[in-house]
C-alpha cells in the first residue's frame, strides 16, 4: 500500500478530499444523531455513578437504611448501577442499529462506488 511517509500506518484509501464529505448534509446528520445521543448519555451515566460515589461517602445514614431484611439502600443502589449499565448498553446498541448503521452504511457504499477503493 503506497502511503506518504508522514502519515504511515492508517493508509487513506486513495488521495481523496474528505473535507467535502465531512461537510455534506448527509454526514452532518449522521454526526448530529450520534453525538446528540451519546454525549448527553455519557454525561448522565457518569453523573449517576458519581452520585453513587458521593452518597457512599457522605450519606451513610441514608445508604444504611434497611429495605428488606439485611438488604439496605446502599446494596440496592449498587445493584441499580449494574442494571443501568446493562440497560444503557442495550439501549445504545438498539439505537445504533436502527438510526446509525443504515446511514453510515449508505455513506460508506457511496464512497466505495465513487472512490473505487
Amino acid at each position: 500500500m503506497g502511503t506518504p511517509p508522514e502519515h504511515t500506518s492508517p493508509g487513506p484509501p486513495g488521495g481523496r478530499d474528505y473535507t467535502e464529505i465531512q461537510q455534506s448534509p448527509e454526514f452532518g446528520e449522521l454526526r448530529r444523531r450520534y453525538r446528540s445521543f451519546v454525549f448527553p448519555l455519557t454525561v448522565a451515566f457518569v453523573a449517576w455513578y458519581l452520585l453513587y460515589v458521593l452518597l457512599s461517602n457522605y450519606a451513610s445514614g441514608f445508604m444504611g437504611a434497611k429495605v428488606v431484611g439485611h438488604i439496605n439502600i446502599a446494596f440496592v443502589f449498587g445493584l441499580a448501577q449494574f442494571l443501568t449499565t446493562f440497560l444503557i448498553a442495550w439501549w445504545y446498541s438498539r439505537f445504533a442499529a436502527a438510526k446509525l448503521d443504515p446511514k453510515a452504511g449508505a455513506i460508506k457504499s457511496r464512497l466505495e462506488q465513487e472512490g473505487g477503493a
Binding site: 484509501p13 464529505i21 455513506i107 460508506k108
Partner: peptide, 21 residues
C-alpha cells in the same frame, strides 16, 4: 492544513467504516 484534512478523513472513516483495515 494537513491536520484539518486528516481530521476530515479520520471523522468520515471513524463514523462510516469506509476504508477500514
Amino acid at each position: 492544513d494537513a491536520n484539518g484534512k486528516k481530521y476530515a478523513e479520520l471523522e468520515v472513516r471513524s463514523m462510516t467504516g469506509y476504508g477500514a483495515h
